[in-house]
Design a protein around this nucleic acid. Structure first.
Lengths: 339, 339
DNA sequence: AAAACTTACGAAAAGGTTTTCGGAAACTTA
DNA sequence: TAAGTTTCCGAAAACCTTTTCGTAAGTTTT
């Protein structure tokens, strides 16, 4: 089975290819009668234009590329959900790549997408990413680029983020107001901006509330997973940090590791130790006890990211200049039984 | 910034476009000297062939399409993880679409992918899908198609599934051997094949173990989510089904709903009622109590699906006939504290 | 030295669409 | 009726790569 082409329609009707093309695109210089003949035949043959040829001519693929660290992740899959749906509404398809937190792979994938001829790129950076030359290359090539979640402030392009400093500040302030005094923090690596910012928010809230920052209450969980949360909680308890009354973590998964350890040791949450997470994974609402967290509005982040990208693609098509924007997505504290 | 073309290289070197193309593809009828000149210049200009033109010529996009019901789902995102990674290894990119369990949308998306010119399609069917004409169309067009997870037996194409009947049979047999006698089942809709099969496995295990099937112990949860599990558990308890000693559900999420209700009512798991799920979501290993489940090997399902698809794409390129295969992925019971 | 090969390159077509431009025919205006 | 306008269509180029086929020059064989 072969696809119908303009040529076939033209030959069948005894007219030229140009006329067929113009008829289907409703050009004014085709008579109503001819238009009808063309459209009728095109429909009966289920004609759809060959996208390869269209892309070659227009240099547009009607496809965008997305690079995320990992797909099996509540936050990212929610963002992708939004990106895919919004793109489809706009007649675009989405190619997804996973950097796997590997900086070199990310670099290669950017090049793959550029070669592929995508009309725009959305990316949440891998943690290790320090050299931004290849992203600058995307910008130089004039390909619309939007950074979301894990961004780099130095790049001149649009960005969608949350205010991590404020969100983190709010968490700690809430804990202090609840009466918790010795608040441990399980921080992430100091590489992606949001990891730094959450740590800064933690510190600032302590300071503003007259609590001295104590570095012995800060534990590192570089990949922010379940095991690290569990291990750090174990360490904390075994180090006899008996006065710690709350543990706040870089992300929910780590917090759930903490909860599991505390549950095992029969340490009462929140009576003996409270736990606060970040990102509001679905899981957090169904574990025991339910986990307080920060709703990051992943879906909205995805929506806004594509929105910015399409704005930029649009400007490019029209040859208009484009003003980069940075959108900050609102976050909210979700209070549950763990605090 | 514009992309380098063969033409530019040809003009710079004062040779023809054909020769440049052949030099880069290492044709034997280009002298070593010319080859070197071409390759050197191509590298310094960072030449990469225009994929639009390549696709137009070869009628291949080096892209495959995937349609799943939903992306924010542990099972599906794991499958996608595998699909994306394996495709990348083979030099293919992946376009992902979500049918949202909407049969009409699914149909539209198949057409989108066909028009896009993807080299193959992977799909897990929406629950409501009853009319398979448009999938037959894919096959008729000669586009490689692989069904996974939620399939239809009548379609003549490759498939990757698990043995749902056996997996379910094993669960119930295990429960019976553990001494549970009144085993309730929260079943899914009778539409996708796997939902039917799990139900059949449940019935058969009862029968083979001399336990009479009791339809009053079967509850329906059509979309198999948390709330339905919770609601059905509530209903079961409020109906005073006091002798029920185990609840087995179509999927983990539903089981977690059950656990949450039982926890709330202080009904001891597994002492008063045991709970068994299906799919082994990550969540199941961290809730209280941890949930017994069936490991479905999602990643492996993804791997095998692309493997079959690429086999078929390969055969097509070589003009060889292709023999459809159905691969059955092994499952294992994962026993935890809920049973 | 003529015949038979080999080597190395280029012309050209094909893949399908889009859009500009030119021109013939039909029509309107003075 | 001549000049000016519309209306409608088609030729052709452009987007870029790939591959077949032809051919000139050079090399080897009789």
């Amino acid at each position: 089975m072969k696809k119908t082409t303009l040529k076939e329609i033209a030959e069948t009707l005894g007219i030229s290819i140009s006329t067929v093309s113009k008829a289907l695109k409703n050009y004014p210089d085709v008579s109503a009668k001819t238009k009808k003949r063309v459209i009728d035949l095109a429909e009966s043959l289920q004609f759809t234009p060959n996208t390869f040829a269209q892309s070659l001519r227009s240099n547009e693929s009607k496809t965008i590329g997305v690079i995320i660290p990992s797909m099996v992740h509540y936050y990212f899959s929610s963002i992708l959900d939004a990106i895919i749906k919004e793109s489809e509404k706009n007649g675009y398809m989405v190619i997804i790549l996973q950097s796997n937190e590997d900086h070199e792979l990310e670099k290669k994938q950017i090049n793959l997408l550029l070669n592929k001829g995508v009309d725009g790129i959305l990316i949440s950076l891998a943690n290790g990413t320090k050299d931004f030359q290849y992203l600058q290359k995307v910008i130089d090539y004039g390909i619309p680029l939007v950074l979301f979640d894990k961004i780099n402030k130095l790049l001149k392009c649009s960005k969608v983020i949350i205010n991590d400093i404020k969100a983190s500040y709010d968490v700690v302030t809430y804990l202090i107001n609840k009466g918790y005094k010795r608040i441990a923090y399980f921080r992430g690596d100091l590489n992606p901006q949001n990891s730094i910012d959450r740590f800064l928010g933690y510190k600032k809230a302590l300071e503003d509330n007259g609590i001295k920052y104590d570095s012995s209450l800060v534990y590192l969980s570089p990949i922010a997973n379940f095991d690290e949360g569990y291990a750090n909680a174990k360490k904390l308890i075994e180090e006899d940090k008996i006065d710690v009354d709350a543990i706040y973590t870089i992300t929910d998964l780590t917090a759930i590791g903490v909860i599991n350890y505390l549950n095992e040791k029969n340490i009462k949450i929140p009576d003996e130790i409270a736990v606060f997470g970040f990102s509001n994974w679905f899981m957090s609402s169904v574990i025991t006890p339910t986990l307080s967290s920060v709703e990051q509005n992943a879906y909205r982040t995805g929506e806004k990211s594509v929105e910015l990208l399409f704005k930029e693609i649009d400007s490019k098509q029209k040859g208009e200049p484009f003003k980069h924007e940075t959108i900050t997505i609102d976050t909210e504290l979700v209070i549950r039984n763990s605090t």
